[in-house]
Amino acid sequence: MSSRPAPQIGFSFEYLMWIFTRISGLVMYLLAFVGLVMAFWMGAHQQVDIGALARWTFFPNPNHVTNTNIPDVTLGWSNAWWQVMEMLIFLFAVTHGMNGVRVIYEDYIGNTWGRALGRGIIFLLWIFLLIVGIYVILAS
């Protein structure tokens, strides 16, 4: 088995998702970097252990740093800025991941009926996870 070839450049679903996977990967690097730098700026070096810092870098949710030495997470670590950051990361990550599942699925399922079923299930799962995740972000 070899890796799949890059799709032809053009306005096709395969090409758009191919380029989206690359761009969203770079965007997630940027968002993680902003989260990490701002955590140090807010005093993570003294207050947060490396495990919690890794969790915060992956996803800047205040619940990820509650069991640390931060005196009050509502000061800086929990506000609308981080909610927007979380929603951006979540949107890119879930779309990137669900498209990845689709690519792997379609490498093994060749017939059109199976592909249509798989795409339907993955699309519903994508919408479901986005709704649940954004609800959790807005409520935390």
Partner: peptide
């Protein structure tokens, strides 16, 4: 890369759903 990608989808998906049930 494929195995770790699927593992992340599984982990993040379960974590989001369990966080919803824990929080709400």
């Amino acid at each position: 890369h494929r195995i770790s990608g699927l593992a992340i989808v599984l982990f993040v998906g379960l974590h989001v759903i369990s966080s919803f049930f824990m929080q709400q």
